[in-house]
């Protein structure tokens, strides 16, 4: 399976989990923002360009299940993926807790961008302290799930080398 197809599969799995599974797994009144965690994991593995595209696609899928205007989560996902891709490129070494760290950061950054864009498009209700509290709780959930998502992305995008069956001399 090609790399693009594997990325598409990861995006589809994320959308289904976000739209049909995690609404049933609410913890402390919040659901995780799996879209942003996926964008962070792809940013870590692939860099900002791919992460922006994946964040956008997964966000667009998640938007289909929300009442907020279509495109808000896609916008946030693209920015989070690109931003974290640029940040990780400047990191000299990979800390041990990179997955929960980036997952939590993605949740906070994505939530802030989502709320800000929402306010701009007329959802004034997102501009409240309560929104920040929810955002913080969701980012903790994101951080806890991040190691699983990072492992899934690493395995999903692992290069398969063709086995060497014989030496060939030209």
């Amino acid at each position: 399976m090609g790399r693009g197809a594997r990325l598409a599969l990861l995006v589809a799995a994320t959308v289904v989990l976000q739209g049909a599974v995690f609404p049933d797994l609410v913890v402390v009144g919040t659901v995780p923002d799996l879209t942003f965690v996926l964008a962070a994991a792809v940013a870590y593995k692939e860099g900002p360009d791919t992460a922006a595209v994946v964040g956008f696609a997964a966000g667009l899928g998640a938007d289909l299940f929300l009442e907020t205007p279509l495109g808000l989560t896609a916008l946030s996902g693209a920015l989070v993926g690109y931003g974290l891709g640029v940040v990780q490129a400047s990191m000299l070494r990979s800390p041990r807790w990179v997955a929960p760290l980036l997952g939590g950061a993605a949740g906070i950054a994505g939530g802030l961008i989502f709320a800000a864009a929402g306010v701009v498009t007329g959802s004034e209700v997102l501009a409240s302290w309560r929104t920040l509290q929810v955002m913080f709780r969701a980012s903790v959930y994101d951080a806890l799930l991040a190691p699983l998502v990072f492992v899934a992305v690493a395995r999903g995008l692992r290069e398969e080398r063709e086995p060497v069956t014989a030496w060939r001399i030209r």
Partner: peptide, 30 residues
């Protein structure tokens, strides 16, 4: 971890995505 060295020449990808997202938000609101 990927060492990303490409400069601003590929930022058009992000710009294109943002433009698409804003268009969708506008269309959906209407």
């Amino acid at each position: 971890m990927v060492a990303y060295r490409r400069g601003g020449s590929r930022r058009y990808v992000l710009a294109l995505l943002l433009l698409t997202a804003v268009t969708l938000v506008t269309l959906d609101s209407r």
